[in-house]
Simulated scan of single mutants.
Amino acid sequence: MQPNVLPFRLRENLSLNKLAATNPTNALPIQIDPKAPLAISAQIAEQIKLLIAFGALQIGDALPPTTTLAKQLQANHNTIAGVYSSLTDSGYLTAQRGKGTFVADTLCVQNLIKNNRHYLLLRQAFTAAQEINISPAEFAGAAYAQAVMLSGAQSNPLKLVFVEEQSPSGLELYHLVQAEVGLPIFFAGWIDVIAQQPEVMNQLRSADLVITTTAYAALMAHMSGLGQNKEILALEVRPSVEVLTQASSLPQDAQMLIIGCDRAEAKRLKQMLKEAGISHIQVQTAALEQIQQHPQKLEQFDALCCSLPAQVQLQTTKMIHHPHLTVFRLRLDPTHLLVLKARINSLQSN
């Protein structure tokens, strides 16, 4: 029996609407080969990323429930759940309680769409391999072996760790840093660092460079158990220019509401505005759950500002229609980023 292989003919940038027209079940065009050298979970994850890269899955599109996709692929439900969880942690998907899993609006998704050229190169290589009767499984194995050999011939990669709060905003900052650096980075949640979770502490001790934000730099410097002379580099986080422009243009004593996924996130964003010099307006904070329960309270505010993760959920529910709604996007201090990149280059050259 021939293995099921996805024909990657996505040049037409199919949307889910077009897929639905030819596929009434809304099943994703994913197929798996149990005999391939690549794990089934990796096959599924990479095909989902491919669908995102070429527009078959677009930002905000819903993925099938795990049980539906498991039934379609005749795969274990836990395997699908693990794939969704892994892609969510990596920033490609976002999970919304009670609503489902969606393609995330993150930098790594935008970079995947923008930099999809390697998929085209793989397609060209596979087409050439088919001409000499190399099977998909043989091609995948050969490609993996070549990648391992080439990476092994290079110097050992840097071990980088990013420490931040384990929250939607913390993960947003993690993806910002990873996109700027262009290297694999281990994410260490602050709660796990405080608890000295063994895996996290091992990653911190063996790291060539620990990256964090100014909010945690002093605390990290005084932590025990990291080893002597552990290098910690702090980045300053600021509101985006759009947020500062909106806040600055409001009249004296105007009322602004900052909405976060939880109250702690909203308060942190409020503190960033204060540190940026915004003091002429009245700023209040609210958790997303409060707004969902009492949307009528929004009418009393002159401007609304919500975190990016909160905005994704609000956009899905379509519950807010306010003329002055801005997404509170974060940005990293450009000077600190230059220092980080220069430090990484220096470590790589040693």
Score class of each variant (00 low, 15 high):
residue 162 F to M: 09
residue 250 L to T: 02
residue 194 I to K: 10
residue 164 E to S: 14
residue 187 F to A: 11
residue 93 L to N: 09
residue 180 E to W: 05
residue 31 Q to M: 04
residue 31 Q to W: 07
residue 94 T to M: 14
residue 14 L to H: 11
residue 316 T to P: 13
residue 271 Q to D: 14
residue 149 M to K: 14
residue 295 P to T: 02
residue 214 T to H: 02
residue 320 I to A: 07
residue 251 P to F: 01
residue 70 A to M: 01
residue 197 Q to F: 01
residue 9 R to Q: 14
residue 117 R to L: 07
residue 111 N to W: 03
residue 306 C to A: 15
residue 299 E to I: 07
residue 311 Q to F: 09
residue 314 L to P: 10
residue 63 L to Q: 06
residue 51 L to F: 03
residue 85 S to A: 13
residue 23 N to E: 10
residue 6 L to S: 11
residue 284 Q to M: 11
residue 282 Q to T: 01
residue 180 E to D: 07
residue 8 F to Q: 13
residue 332 L to Q: 07
residue 145 A to Y: 11
residue 113 I to R: 00
residue 181 V to K: 13
residue 263 R to Q: 15
residue 342 A to R: 12
residue 123 R to H: 06
residue 54 F to Q: 11
residue 51 L to H: 03
residue 137 A to L: 00
residue 245 T to W: 05
residue 60 G to R: 01
residue 171 L to C: 09
residue 342 A to N: 15
residue 32 I to V: 03
residue 192 D to K: 10
residue 179 A to G: 04
residue 213 T to Y: 03
residue 169 S to R: 06
residue 144 Y to G: 05
residue 142 A to T: 13
residue 226 L to V: 10
residue 269 L to A: 11
residue 163 V to W: 12
residue 253 D to I: 00
residue 271 Q to S: 13
residue 174 Y to D: 11
residue 161 V to C: 15
residue 340 L to V: 01
residue 51 L to R: 04
residue 70 A to G: 10
residue 204 L to F: 00
residue 344 I to M: 03
residue 86 S to A: 15
residue 181 V to D: 03
residue 250 L to R: 03
residue 315 Q to P: 02
residue 171 L to I: 10
residue 345 N to D: 01
residue 156 N to T: 15
residue 94 T to I: 15
residue 302 D to A: 14
residue 291 I to H: 07
residue 278 I to V: 03
residue 47 Q to C: 02
residue 350 N to R: 05
residue 247 A to W: 02
residue 141 G to S: 01
residue 244 L to V: 02
residue 35 K to P: 09
residue 49 K to C: 11
residue 111 N to I: 03
residue 181 V to R: 13
residue 84 Y to N: 14
residue 95 A to W: 04
residue 230 K to F: 02
residue 201 M to C: 07
residue 249 S to R: 13
residue 34 P to Y: 00
residue 266 A to G: 14
residue 264 A to G: 12
residue 293 Q to W: 11
residue 233 L to N: 05
residue 249 S to I: 06
residue 117 R to A: 12
residue 133 N to Y: 03
residue 269 L to T: 08
residue 75 A to L: 04
residue 278 I to F: 01
residue 92 Y to R: 14
residue 81 A to K: 15
residue 247 A to N: 07
residue 143 A to F: 10
residue 273 L to T: 09
residue 251 P to N: 00
residue 212 T to Y: 06
residue 214 T to K: 01
residue 211 I to G: 04
residue 145 A to R: 11
residue 175 H to T: 14
residue 318 K to H: 11
residue 98 G to C: 07
residue 12 E to Y: 11
residue 205 R to Y: 01
residue 50 L to P: 00
residue 135 S to T: 06
residue 233 L to E: 06
residue 338 L to I: 08
residue 236 E to R: 00
residue 268 R to I: 05
residue 215 A to D: 14
residue 154 Q to F: 09
residue 174 Y to T: 08
residue 202 N to L: 02
residue 293 Q to G: 15
residue 163 V to I: 11
residue 149 M to Y: 09
residue 197 Q to C: 06
residue 163 V to D: 08
residue 158 L to Y: 05
residue 25 T to K: 13
residue 335 T to K: 08
residue 337 L to Q: 10
residue 98 G to P: 03
residue 120 L to V: 09
residue 65 P to F: 00
residue 315 Q to T: 04
residue 193 V to L: 07
residue 188 A to M: 09
residue 106 T to I: 13
residue 55 G to I: 08
residue 294 H to L: 12
residue 64 P to M: 00
residue 234 A to F: 05
residue 57 L to N: 02
residue 178 Q to L: 08
residue 23 N to V: 01
residue 247 A to F: 04
residue 345 N to Y: 00
residue 51 L to V: 00
